[in-house]
């Protein structure tokens, strides 16, 4: 028997692997945001609401494509069920989704003390906010775009010209849908995000956003109808829809958007959307600089 012996240190061993930069940390926050909003790898009840909303947003297109498949032809009148109109069909559901997603991304970290998870990591406050904003924007974009894509592909599947011809021959429509989805993201997500940055509870944040969206239309309509045209700038829910119709060239068919009635051109609506997004971003950063 050998008389040699050794005592091994079972304590801490340093990590000697590769270290990623700040970008890796930001990506981690983005992914965590997706998980948070969509309830991925979370309990079933956390998945119900986001996926139910997405399912509801998809129901009309599924039915429409189903009808097309049965009848075997595209509807001639796309005023009822075109790409531009589908944004209206899912409007309230999209607002509800945006309100819940923005609140879920920002409020719990502040209220539950988990901001410390980020504040004590190699991330700037703006990195955290940018990552959260990207999570929200990408999910909302997906929410808007998935039904549009399904509609586009569904129409291709039943097209008498053949799937490939339809898909490749209507790329402009797909581009318009992409642009309109981005427009919706830019118009709504920053506002929802800003209200979530101010609210102390998730349901309050969601209610504030939904209330703002519900009220801005009727209030500004009343003011514009009483020749107070400048109020048309505050018709927050109408600017992206006004621009969307311009994108899809349907504005002549649906002329009752408040900014149009107030005499504003499309570029004014674009400027209002951009200004609202910038102002929201400034307010959010200021709020978080004080919070940490």
């Amino acid at each position: 028997m050998s008389d040699r012996g050794a005592v091994f240190d079972l304590g801490y061993k340093p990590y000697d692997g590769v270290r990623n930069g700040r970008r890796g940390a930001i990506q981690a926050v983005v992914k965590e945001g997706w998980r948070k909003v969509l309830g991925l790898r979370r309990r079933a009840r956390r998945k119900v609401l986001p996926w139910a909303l997405l399912a509801i947003a998809l129901i009309p297109v599924v039915i429409y494509v189903g009808v097309l498949a049965v009848t075997g032809e595209l509807a001639e009148n796309t005023d009822v069920f075109g790409h531009a109109q589908y944004f209206n069909l899912t409007g309230f559901i999209a607002h509800l989704f945006i309100a819940l997603a923005a609140a879920e991304l920002l409020v719990p970290d502040r209220v539950d003390g988990t901001m410390q998870v980020y504040a004590s990591r190699p991330l700037r406050t703006t990195d955290y906010l940018a990552a959260r904003a990207f999570s929200l924007a990408s999910i909302v974009f997906g929410f808007m775009m998935v039904p549009q894509l399904l509609l586009y592909l569904g129409e291709g599947a039943v097209s008498t010209n053949g799937f490939l011809d339809h898909v490749t021959g209507n790329l402009g429509t797909l581009g318009d849908a992409l642009a309109a989805s981005l427009l919706y993201v830019l118009a709504y997500a920053p506002l929802a995000f800003m209200l979530a940055a101010l609210a102390g509870k998730t349901n309050v944040a969601a209610a504030l956003y939904l209330g703002l969206m519900a009220m801005s239309g009727p209030v500004t309509r009343g003011l514009v109808d009483n020749e107070f045209e400048i109020a048309g700038l505050f018709a927050l829910d109408h600017h992206p829809r006004y621009l969307r119709d311009w994108l899809f060239d349907t504005s002549t068919k649906v002329p009752d958007w408040i900014p149009a009635d107030a005499g504003y051109d499309e570029w004014v609506s674009a400027a209002v959307i951009a200004a609202t997004a910038v102002l929201s971003a400034v307010l959010i950063v200021r709020r978080y600089r004080r919070a940490l």
Binding site: G17, R19, N20, G24, Q27, A28, P122, L123
Partner: peptide
Amino acid sequence: ASLNGVSD
């Protein structure tokens, strides 16, 4: 670990 840039 991700937030701190650890790859593995």
